[in-house]
Amino acid sequence: MPNEFNQQIIEEFRANGGKVGGPFEGARLLLLTTVGARSGARHTTPLGYLPDGGGRVLVIASAGGAPNHPAWFHNLVANPLVTVEDGLFTYEARAAVLEGAERDRVFARAVEADPGWADYQARTARVIPVVALQGVDGGPPKASSAGETLKLVHDVFRRELALIRKEVTESGAGLGAQLRVNCLTLCQGLHNHHTGEDIAMFPFLAGHRPELAPVLERLGREHERIAVLIEELREVLSAEGADPPLVLAEVERLTDELERHLTYEEEQLLPVLGT
């Protein structure tokens, strides 16, 4: 029988491009669909996740510290090919249960970021599994137009930057390993997005809408400025004993520049791309 609370989250997530309210407002959330180990039926579960870079995300089978693994974990052990929804894309992924030192290192990273994971582990005798989800087959954006896709992508970056600012502010004296990964994953995502625009979308628009030349030139210059800010943030993150106030200052510089850029791009291109 479907869990009514989970079903409400799933419906809200799908209706709002990955945004939900209530206890999970502002959290990193995905929808994981597994195939039942016994039934063969598809089951969808909302889960918090941790960025891991390289197109890989991590989920933790805590079940709130319950004595048994959650059903979704048993399902993906039996059938490792799963479906992931992140609010923008729906894609196939291969699930791999982390073992030994790798599991312990990643779980420690999660605990450093959120001590609640340690509380869950303390409640149960089982070793709480950590699962890596690696995309193997991408799907189209969940949008009806290029403009809607662009706005959804922008909003993902806005949410992630807001979350990272909050995490850095609350990080205390040291910058945890998971927070570094979060920042670096964001940096790579921005780089990939702007590179894609530079080599594909902007040349296409320039060829079909020559009147947009001044807009595209400005957006290209802004990409260059943002690339410098991304590299400066990476340098601060790579320093031994990275100082949270310095990291926060770089994140805020990037946020301010990026928000101006995203707002201008939306004002100029959404009417052309459709919404």
Score class of each variant (00 low, 15 high):
A132N: 03
L133H: 05
Q134C: 08
G135T: 08
P140N: 10
A143Q: 15
A146G: 15
L150D: 11
L152M: 14
H154D: 11
H154I: 02
I164P: 03
E167Y: 07
E167A: 08
E167H: 09
V168W: 01
V168H: 02
T169Q: 10
T169G: 06
T169W: 08
S171V: 02
S171N: 09
G172A: 12
G172S: 12
G172M: 07
G174D: 11
G176M: 09
A177Q: 13
L179R: 03
R180C: 08
C183L: 15
L184A: 14
T185M: 11
T185V: 13
C187Q: 11
H191D: 13
H194T: 02
H194W: 08
H194L: 06
T195E: 10
T195S: 10
E197S: 06
D198L: 07
D198I: 03
M201C: 12
F204N: 12
L205Q: 04
A206Y: 13
H208F: 15
H208D: 14
V215W: 11
L216D: 15
E217T: 15
R218H: 15
G220A: 15
E224D: 15
E224V: 13
I226V: 08
I226N: 01
E231V: 03
R234W: 05
R234T: 00
E235R: 01
V236R: 11
A242Q: 02
A242I: 00
A242C: 05
P245D: 10
L246H: 06
L248G: 00
D256H: 07
E257S: 01
R260C: 03
R260V: 02
E265G: 04
E266N: 04
E266W: 04
E267G: 12
E267F: 07
L269I: 02
L270Q: 02
